[in-house]
Computed example of a mutant assay.
Amino acid sequence: MADTMSNVKLVIYKKIVDGDLRKFSATSNDQPSGGGARDLRFSPAGEFMAAFEKMFPHRENNVLYGHFSWAGYDSTEVFIHPPTNSRPNEIRIGRVHECFPAGVIPDSARDCILLLILDDNGKVWPHFTSEHSLRTDNWHPVVKNAILEGLGARRGERVTPMGFINIADGGSYTNGR
């Protein structure tokens, strides 16, 4: 992401862990009886819902929907599911094995961060990067600093770092302290 922010309105980020990476390839089933989870989860829902609504303003039956845009691939349909009774604090990107082309999935979750970037044309561009890239490559300081601060925030060891930077309206959120 070059040192320009004129066309970026909002960035949602999430550190990708091994379990997440397995969801992209539809190999997250730990038991032969089930298919395993196929969604990426974001919490707390109260913080993330407004950010996802900006990215995906279309709604049917309380499910947000739209498309991911890709360089070199056709756009893919994406569905954002609201919290459920069993997971009342999570928003989910459903069926990630279908909305992320196999050719963009990283080989390893080691130092892997997913960015969802909303541009001023209303398109959402997923992008995988790393903390190393954020520290050493030419990232815009607003994005770089907010994500690095979010990644470094204190949280429980079982809590995956995630957050967002609202460039258009100002403000940011991280699930750490």
Results as ranks from 00 to 15, higher is better:
residue 32 P to E: 15
residue 10 L to G: 09
residue 27 T to P: 03
residue 113 I to C: 01
residue 141 P to F: 06
residue 150 G to D: 13
residue 143 V to K: 01
residue 59 R to A: 12
residue 177 R to P: 00
residue 50 A to C: 02
residue 48 F to Q: 10
residue 128 F to D: 11
residue 26 A to Q: 05
residue 45 A to G: 14
residue 97 H to G: 04
residue 169 D to F: 04
residue 107 D to Y: 13
residue 65 Y to C: 01
residue 116 L to D: 01
residue 112 C to G: 08
residue 27 T to L: 10
residue 163 G to Q: 11
residue 113 I to Y: 03
residue 62 N to I: 13
residue 169 D to I: 14
residue 55 M to F: 04
residue 136 T to W: 03
residue 106 P to H: 07
residue 35 G to C: 12
residue 147 I to T: 11
residue 64 L to P: 00
residue 123 K to L: 12
residue 92 R to D: 04
residue 164 F to S: 10
residue 84 T to V: 06
residue 139 W to T: 12
residue 84 T to F: 05
residue 94 G to H: 06
residue 139 W to K: 08
residue 32 P to V: 09
residue 16 I to L: 09
residue 143 V to G: 00
residue 102 A to P: 03
residue 136 T to M: 10
residue 72 G to A: 07
residue 51 A to Y: 00
residue 102 A to V: 06
residue 169 D to R: 11
residue 145 N to V: 14
residue 156 G to Q: 01
residue 78 V to G: 07
residue 118 L to F: 07
residue 170 G to D: 05
residue 158 R to I: 13
residue 104 V to R: 04
residue 170 G to I: 05
residue 57 P to G: 01
residue 44 P to K: 11
residue 75 S to E: 15
residue 59 R to E: 15
residue 168 A to E: 15
residue 28 S to W: 05
residue 173 Y to P: 03
residue 52 F to K: 02
residue 120 D to M: 00
residue 139 W to N: 07
residue 116 L to P: 08
residue 13 Y to H: 11
residue 91 I to V: 15
residue 48 F to E: 07
residue 16 I to E: 05
residue 77 E to W: 00
residue 80 I to N: 03
residue 6 S to I: 05
residue 168 A to P: 09
residue 141 P to R: 03
residue 3 D to P: 05
residue 113 I to V: 14
residue 73 Y to K: 11
residue 131 E to T: 15
residue 147 I to S: 02
residue 50 A to P: 06
residue 97 H to L: 00
residue 150 G to M: 12
residue 9 K to I: 04
residue 133 S to T: 15
residue 174 T to A: 14
residue 35 G to S: 14
residue 76 T to S: 10
residue 37 A to Q: 10
residue 138 N to F: 08
residue 161 P to C: 02
residue 161 P to L: 00
residue 141 P to T: 15
residue 162 M to C: 08
residue 96 V to W: 03
residue 11 V to R: 05
residue 20 D to C: 09
